[in-house]
Every structure is written in C-alpha cells, then in structure tokens.
Design a protein around this nucleic acid. Structure first.
Lengths: 174, 174
DNA sequence: TAGTTCGTTTAGTAACTACTAAACGGACAT
DNA sequence: ATGTCCGTTTAGTAGTTACTAAACGAACTA
C-alpha cells in the first residue's frame, strides 16, 4: 500500500526537524528548510507559515537565520511586495557557510583562551615542576585543536564533498 | 606580571566549560574534565566537588557521562572505597568514543527516515511528475548524508589525528 | 547491631530556549 | 491622508535543561 505524497512529505519534514534538533538548531528550522527543500518553486513567508503551522514571527526569524547560514535564499518578484525563499540544494556550499557562521564566535574565543593559558604558563617563573606538567598538558590540547582546525580547513577547501573525494581521503589514510 | 598558577588553571577550566557548551554538552562537564585534565593524579569524586564547586550529585552523573564517552577513566585503589577519575590524554581516542556514543541513537534514526522517505517515494505510482522531482531532491540529500558518514568513518579509522595525517589529506585534495 | 563513608537517585528549581500572540512600522494603493 | 499588506519586533509562555539539596542504599567498621 503506497501512501499519499503529502503524507510522505510530512514524514520527511519531521525527519529533518529531528536532525535539526540533533545538530543544535531549533526543530522549527529543520521543518522550514524541509518545506522549502521539497518545493520546486520559491515560497512566500505566509506559505511557509501555512505548511509548517508555525506563526509568522517564528518563521520570520528562523528563515532569516537559515539565510545567514546560506541554507536558503531570499528573492523578490517585481511588483510583488512579498519575499520568497528557496532552499539551497548544494549542501556542501551550505555547510561551508555554517562553519563560517559558527567560526569566529564563541568557539574561536574559547579555543583562543587555551592558547592564552599556554602563553601565560610559559611566561611564569615560579613552581617549575608543576608548571612543566601543566604546559605539557595544555600544549597537547592545543595541538589537538590545531589538527581539528586544519582538517576543517581542508574539507572546506573542497569545492564539493562527494563520494569521490571521500574515497580519495580513505585511500590516503589506510 | 605573571599570575598565580591557580588563577591560570581556573581560566583554562572556564575556557573548557565554554567549549563544552558550544559542542552541546553541559558546561559543568567541561569544568570537570578540565579539573581532571590538569591533575597529575586521579581525583576522588569529593575532590572534584571541591575544585568545581558543583554538588556531589551533579558530579556523579556528569563524570559517569564523561566515562561513557571515554574522556575520563574510573579507577579504584585497594582498601579504599572511593572511586578515582583521571582524564584521557589521547583526545583522538576520545572523539572516536564520542562519535560512537552519538551514533546509533537519534541521529541514525533520523537519517534513516530520509532513506525511508526515498523508498516510499520510489514505491509510489501516482503523480509521476511531482514524484520524480521529490525523488531527485531526497536522493541528493541522502547522498550528502552518506558522504558525511563515509568521511566520519574515514577519520575514525585513523589511529591518531595528527598534523601529519591532516597534511596528507590536504595533499590529496588539492 | 548501629554508625560511617562512600556513590546514586530523586524531587524540586532557576534559567534558558523555542515558540505564540499581537502590536508595530514601512511601502504601496486608493 | 487612510487603509491594506507585508515583514519585524516585542512581551509573554510552555517546555526543557542543568543544576541543587537531600533522601537513599550499598559496603564496610566498631
């Protein structure tokens, strides 16, 4: 027994909501993206409201957040006051925007504080034995963060994240 | 003017709290790990309580969560009822545990629902044009998730994430 | 037995997050 | 101007999360 298309779409959208929540975003955001992603044409804010069941205010703020992340694009039509939104279909392009959005904010500052700690420890003079131990530990953590950062940069430099590239990575690493 | 070691440690621990929160974990968890990471010897639960200012209940539950993720290890001493905890210093080993912990839960289920959606769409018969469009979109999303998954597996297969390996990746991808 | 000394569990709370409802303001039409 | 049709902003709320305080239970001790 095959289901109605509308039901299937709804399940998909709920799945995206879950995924959204898992990645630390509001679930409504996932639903909005899902609605747009399954639409062949750009949708107006009110149409998104209708299809998600959220209020206009919520959709307004969350669709803008999606736009900042590059997951949706806003457009307008001549002689039409409404804004229209459509989903970005190149996910890889989107996650680069997301990484950029997240970068340079709390995370960078926090990781920078590790670097600061290391500098302060190395500048100290007293308590040589304990300081040596702390320096070693903090240095190891900082190197780890640097490695992660390098990896992220490497992935971001790709112009597409396809099975091909991933398999190339796998090939090098075995 | 160099600061006291205790102050520097405290700043480091607060930095880890921020990082913890950024990654979606409670900040107390980051603080606990920080205290353990800066200690040359395993610490008892009460000692962690003392150094973090959290209550025993909170430390008890969160330190167990850290142990599940492989970020800390629990040990005991003979003729001593206390549990002792120490930080894992091989971060790479830890993130593999974390990935495993996160895997196979909500995320897998949600991603699986995308796969289900695709299957249902392909099993349908009615509304051929719209179905073709939806199939294409959902298929693209699923391929993207598969690529991410492959990449994660690739990274997890490394026995260490050092600059060396990252540079090898960079070399292949340019 | 009763009394310590641990870790765990539970009930309750303060703070935060994702929302809703509704007021608001700008741009256009009449 | 006045009204209408947009998107945005604001005030308030339900639900969640990360905790605290304290009861509990298990393992040893006297």
């Amino acid at each position: 027994m095959t289901q109605k298309l509308e039901d299937i779409k709804q399940e998909f959208i709920e799945g995206l909501s879950q995924i959204s929540r898992f990645w630390g975003f509001p679930k409504g955001m996932g639903a909005i993206f899902g609605v747009l992603y399954l639409s062949p044409a750009p949708l107006s804010l009110d149409e998104i409201v209708r299809q998600t069941g959220l209020t206009k205010g919520a959709v307004s703020t969350e669709v803008r957040a999606l736009a900042r992340m590059g997951l949706v694009h806003r457009s307008t039509k001549l002689a039409d006051r409404k804004d229209y939104y459509e989903a970005e279909t190149d996910f890889y392009k989107s996650i680069r925007s997301i990484l950029k959005e997240r970068q340079n904010t709390e995370f960078d500052r926090a990781v920078g504080s590790v670097k600061d700690t290391l500098a302060k420890l190395e500048a100290g003079t007293s308590n040589a034995e304990e300081r040596a131990f702390l320096i070693e530990r903090v240095r190891a953590l900082q190197e780890f963060f640097d490695a992660i950062d390098s990896l992220a940069r490497a992935v971001v430099k790709l112009e597409s994240l396809g099975l091909v590239n991933v398999q190339r990575i796998l090939g090098v690493l075995k």
